[in-house]
Amino acid sequence: MVTRRTLSILVENQPGVLAKVAGLFRRRGYNIHSLAVGITENPEVSRIVTVVEAGPEETEQIIKQLNKLVEVLRVNDVTNHHTVDRELALVKVNATPGTRAEIMEVASIFRANVVDVSEKTMTLEVTGKGEKIDAIIQLLRKHGIREMVRTGQVTLVRGVQTT
């Protein structure tokens, strides 16, 4: 059965590594739902968090193939771990004197920050799980979203355990 699986991948922080990982996904036909990369507590190591759509056998293949890349140090499937998952979105919506208050209210319900205001727009910054971000975008849509940007999911396992 195909489901979304979250993989946490530690890699050497070197040029070209992200291209290698992405290239592997492309040429073997794996489906990436999201991908985020950044450095870790160790400046020589980066963490890639990717959400893939795959069945159990395919997930196992993906992990094994990732492990074959020399720069890949460790791969963990954290789907069934207790995790903190976050995405971030910046959403620029149309705002008039008449709608500002309503937008502010939506923002406060979702604990979004207003990070920019112009005569005709407001830009909200929202973080949270993917569903939360989907929900606020849904509510803001009626005002007219001028543009938006959204990151891939980042994930850490809860508790003392490290992955």
């Binding site: 056998e57 196992e60 094994k64 074959k68």
Partner: peptide, 11 residues
């Protein structure tokens, strides 16, 4: 020797 070969085509 390659873990990725095991189960790739035939369990």
């Amino acid at each position: 020797i390659d873990p990725a070969e095991i189960g790739k085509n035939k369990p």
